[in-house]
């Protein structure tokens, strides 16, 4: 059974429809519609606890959905789990190795189970474990275990790689090697779907990203798409002594203004371009406003990610970056 064909002839590697999962009344994944195209690298982003692993667990049949459905490589996740796992390489999250088995035995097990004919040594060399092939995995560091799991995922040249937080425990060098292997796999024709809570890891390699927050997909686009959307939405936050409707009307009618909102003493102005700030300030002063502070929000993609995955309703791109210096990366690891 081949991948599902869409109307626009684009092939779909992963597709979910209203996929949902609730644990004891806590919604982990909420009405998720994902579409990962064949041959692309899809970054599945979100803070810890956003529902990324639950989604992957549902795709793999570890956890059945509470509602909704999905296909992976054209196979239904509920009824054809075995068939989809035959063609998928999995790097799971929170896995444990078999302490008493060597790296070679681990990879052999994956190769045999997949009925493939790879050479375990070649796979282990590829992930940088050449000198640990016959060592017991019980003594491996987290990074080595991660490499071992990747070697197992690569067995049998899978059509899809499902990698759950693949960079966990890897140093920058290891993360770079991981990216290089992902690129090789895509060049071979594989589709790669991987989750991460750090945008920096996916920016360089993803064709598209989906951003998950509290179980919902709050954005899905190419990196360029997200960036351009964000650039067009440059923000100006002007603090004045007393915002009035006249001032808002004046700002709204200024050329280049996309949107105006009042937040307490602030007037939050969305602009088409960066160079439209001066006319806005003139308009406010002409309308009788006394300006006490001006903040220009010109954030990076990191800020976009932070905005999407923390406060606000997920569409409020500029405001959360206001109180920080523009472009400063924001720690998202503790946001679970």
């Amino acid at each position: 059974m081949g991948p599902v064909e869409l109307g626009d002839q684009q092939m779909v590697a992963i597709q979910t429809r209203n996929l949902s999962r609730t644990f004891d009344e806590v919604v982990a994944v909420d009405d998720l519609d994902l579409e990962v195209h064949t041959g692309e690298v899809y970054g599945f982003l979100g803070p810890n606890g956003a529902g990324k692993s639950t989604t992957i667990n549902m795709l793999l049949g570890f956890v059945p959905p509470s509602d909704g459905s999905g296909t992976v490589l054209g196979h239904d996740i509920a009824t054809e789990s075995l068939a989809l796992r035959r063609r998928t390489g999995v790097l799971p999250e929170d896995f444990g190795v078999y302490d008493r088995l060597t790296a070679r035995k681990h990879v052999e097990f994956a190769i045999e189970t997949k009925a493939a004919d790879d050479d375990p040594e070649v796979l282990l060399e590829r992930v940088g474990l050449a000198d640990a092939i016959d060592r017991k995995a019980g003594g491996f560091s987290k990074g080595m275990a991660q490499r071992l799991a990747l070697a197992m995922a690569l067995a049998g040249d899978p059509d899809l790689l499902l990698l759950d937080e693949p960079s966990t425990g890897l140093d920058p060098n290891g993360a770079r090697e991981m990216r290089s292997i992902i690129r090789q796999e895509v060049d071979r024709g594989a589709t790669v779907f991987f989750s991460s809570h750090i945008l920096g890891q996916v920016e360089a390699i993803c064709d598209r990203v989906g951003v998950l927050r509290e179980g919902r997909l709050v954005a899905e686009d190419t990196i360029e798409g997200l960036r351009s959307e964000f650039d067009s939405a440059a923000r100006l936050i002007v603090t004045i002594d007393e915002p009035t409707d006249d001032i808002v009307t004046a700002v709204r009618s200024t050329a280049g203004v996309v949107d105006v909102r009042i937040e307490e003493a602030d007037i939050v102005v969305s602009l088409e371009r960066d160079d439209r700030k001066a006319p806005v300030i003139n308009a406010i002063e002409d309308a009788g406003g006394t300006i006490t502070d001006i903040t220009s929000a010109d954030p990076s993609l990191e800020d976009l990610f932070a905005a999407l995955t923390t406060d606000g309703d997920g569409t409020d791109l500029g405001v959360s970056s206001r109180n920080r210096s523009p472009g400063r990366p924001r720690a998202t690891e503790g946001d679970a």
Partner: peptide
């Protein structure tokens, strides 16, 4: 380690 077992087919 069951994630290996059941991530594989």
């Amino acid at each position: 380690s069951i994630r290996f077992l059941l991530g594989l087919p």
